[in-house]
Design a protein around this nucleic acid. Structure first.
Length: 359
DNA sequence: CTCCTGGGTGC
DNA sequence: CCTGATCCCAGGAG
């Protein structure tokens, strides 16, 4: 039996949760923000509802830009509440996972489900399953979502994206080529702005163009692995198994500082809390780390990073502080830049004694 | 092969 | 005007 995959994406997730928690926000532009604290309105938009999107306010735009665009409207600006979204996400994804065999958590608002058996290989039945799932999520969580169904995780994900919000798009195997052909190459997950621009500069605009592109050129430009992925993706081919993801590999925290600095002690002070947070999370989840990394971003937003592998796995915050001090000092000595943002990372995580599974 | 850095992604 | 978190890959050095 050929595989059938369902991909689900909760619509404008963070903003939709805020609308549910504060029904008086419904109908207004809602902008969920990550405030950096540098000044009152510095930061970026995390999620905006559709009312706000009408004004060009989308994820990633500066908050100041959003304020300017929404001036004169009754827009609501809210800070992100990750714990709240995460709690709801777990409930939704639990519901989703009950509808199929294998489930994969793609992100806080996205999941993929293998429904080959649940649908008996029948797309009509798969569609009815999706309708039922959407209804249950609406009833239980008052959330709308967009669903795609297709013969591979890739096609299902792209399908979930074409009809939003509250969409359901089914792409049968014999329809895959016609479905993908006219789309821009940027619809393929993994092809962002940079890669799309590069491809377009070579005359490759649509997925059909990509399918007919020279494989040698793709491998030369993108490397062996990504080149091969692109050639397969253009045909909708994606053999990856759902739910095969390993445990978490890294944890990181980065913050924007009120003042630019290149002083080591200031950087240590600014990142002390980040180290504590990472330490707490390691403890809670019973993880140890085998490498430490630091990140700095200068005034022109250029990124610097350094990392070091430890001789033994550690679970200790002091070890993290000590290593980060040395890494920060190295970057400072190698450049004259003033830094705007500073961050810490613990890497190559492993489950501590007790063989608890990670997820 | 392992480690490290930088770049890209995507939300 | 410019957030924060994660993963993946390429390519160079050792």
């Amino acid at each position: 039996m050929d595989r059938i995959v369902l991909h689900l994406d909760i619509d404008y997730f963070f903003a939709q949760v805020e609308e549910n928690d504060r029904p008086e926000f419904k109908g207004k532009p809602v902008v969920v923000c990550v405030y950096s604290g540098r000044d009152e309105t510095s930061g970026a938009v995390s999620t905006a509802n559709y009312e706000a999107r009408k004004y060009g306010v989308r994820a990633g735009v500066p908050i100041k830009f959003a304020i300017a665009r929404l001036k004169g409207t009754n827009a609501v600006f809210l800070p992100v509440r990750h714990e709240r979204y995460s709690e709801i996400s777990q409930g939704v994804m639990q519901t989703v996972s009950g509808y199929g065999e294998k489930f994969g958590y793609a992100s806080v608002d996205e999941g993929a489900l293998d429904i080959t058996k649940a649908s008996e290989g029948d797309y009509a039945k798969a569609g009815r399953l999706a309708e039922k799932l959407k209804f249950e999520i609406l009833e239980k969580f008052r959330l709308t979502c967009s669903v795609g169904i297709g013969p591979s995780p890739l096609v299902a994900k792209i399908a979930s994206d074409v009809n939003k919000p509250n969409g359901l798009t089914i792409v049968r195997p014999q329809e895959v080529e016609a479905f993908l052909s006219p789309m821009g190459v940027g619809k393929i997950p993994g092809i962002g702005n940079k890669s799309a621009e590069f491809l377009e500069s070579g005359g490759i605009r649509t997925i059909e163009d990509l399918r007919n592109a020279d494989p040698g050129m793709l491998v030369e430009s993108f490397g062996r692995k990504t080149g091969a992925w692109l050639m397969n993706a253009a045909k909708g081919v994606d053999e990856s198994e759902i739910g095969a993801e390993g445990g978490q590999k890294q944890l990181s925290r980065i913050k924007t500082m009120k003042q630019d600095t290149r002083d080591l002690e200031t950087l240590m002070r600014e990142t002390a809390e980040l180290a504590d947070e990472l330490g707490a999370e390691l403890r809670e989840r019973r993880l140890s780390y085998k490498a430490v990394g630091v990140m700095l971003v200068d005034e022109s937003l250029k990124a610097y990073s350094k990392a070091r592998t430890l001789s033994h796995p550690s679970e200790d915050v002091f070890e993290l502080r000590k290593a980060s001090r040395e890494l920060f000092a190295q970057i400072i000595s190698e450049t004259g830049a003033q830094f705007r943002r500073a961050g810490l990372r613990v890497d190559r995580l492993e489950s501590r004694e007790g063989q608890q599974t990670l997820f």
